[in-house]
Computed example of a mutant assay.
Amino acid sequence: MNFATIIATVGGVGYMRPAPGTWGSLVALPMAALLHIIGGPWLLLIAIIAAFFEGLWATTQVTRWEDDHDPAHVVIDEVVGQWIALLPLSFGAWHAGASIFALWPGWIAAFVLFRLFDILKPGPIGWADRRHTPSGVMLDDVIAGAFAAICVALLAALAHGVMGS
């Protein structure tokens, strides 16, 4: 396995079946928790940016001679998108001085919402996916992650009474 394939498949996670995208999203959870514990939301944000560009490079390399623009084994895009979906939780825990694990309902919401947006591909998510380019592979999950992050933040606001009474 070459370096680009290791990055694109997140160390081979992309070869897990069934549903390699879901496995990619699942492996992103403990990685995000570790990043948050080590350096808070700022380290997670830096990791998102770095992984996006590494993923763009790796996806370009892995799909260069392939007919399939978005092979199932490429899951670095799911990791980036899932991390984006978790970003409001990381900032919320940091702001409140709470354990990232205390926000466990948000983790479930972030995972489920990201997977739904990634699978259903509404609006701009589908547009990015239809680009059939390495940037489209990465961007559809970035947008799905952003949609999920917005929903997570709204659900947290509802759950904590910010929008109530």
Rank of each mutant, 00 (worst) to 15 (best):
F3V: 14
F3P: 00
I6T: 08
T9F: 06
V13M: 05
G14A: 02
M16G: 00
P18D: 08
A19E: 07
T22Q: 01
W23D: 04
W23K: 02
G24F: 07
S25H: 07
L26W: 03
L29W: 10
M31H: 00
M31W: 05
A32R: 00
A33I: 15
A33S: 05
L34A: 13
L35Q: 05
L35S: 07
L35K: 05
I38G: 01
I38P: 04
P41D: 03
W42Q: 08
W42Y: 12
W42E: 10
L43T: 02
L43S: 04
L44Y: 01
L44E: 03
L44H: 02
L44I: 10
A47S: 13
I49F: 14
I49S: 06
A50E: 00
F52S: 00
F52C: 00
L56R: 02
W57Q: 02
T59N: 02
T59A: 14
T60N: 02
T60Y: 00
T60P: 01
Q61M: 14
D67P: 00
D68K: 13
D68W: 11
D70S: 05
D70Q: 03
A72K: 12
H73R: 11
V75C: 13
V75P: 13
D77E: 07
D77I: 10
D77C: 08
E78M: 04
V79G: 02
G81K: 10
W83Y: 11
W83Q: 11
W83N: 09
W83S: 10
I84K: 09
A85S: 14
L86A: 06
S90D: 05
F91K: 00
W94K: 03
H95G: 04
A96C: 03
G97Y: 07
G97M: 08
I100G: 04
I100F: 14
A102H: 10
L103M: 14
P105A: 09
P105Q: 10
G106I: 13
W107I: 11
A109R: 04
A109I: 15
A110E: 12
F111V: 05
L113N: 02
F117C: 03
I119R: 02
I119V: 15
L120T: 02
P122V: 10
P122W: 08
P122C: 09
P122E: 08
P124D: 02
I125H: 08
I125R: 06
G126Q: 07
A128W: 12
A128L: 13
D129M: 11
R131N: 12
H132Y: 12
T133V: 11
T133S: 15
P134L: 13
S135P: 00
G136F: 12
M138N: 01
D141I: 09
D141P: 07
I143A: 06
I143S: 05
A144D: 06
F147G: 00
F147I: 07
A149D: 09
A149Y: 10
C151L: 15
C151H: 04
A153I: 05
A153V: 04
L155T: 08
A156S: 14
L158Q: 11
L158S: 11
A159S: 15
G161E: 12
V162Y: 14
G164S: 12
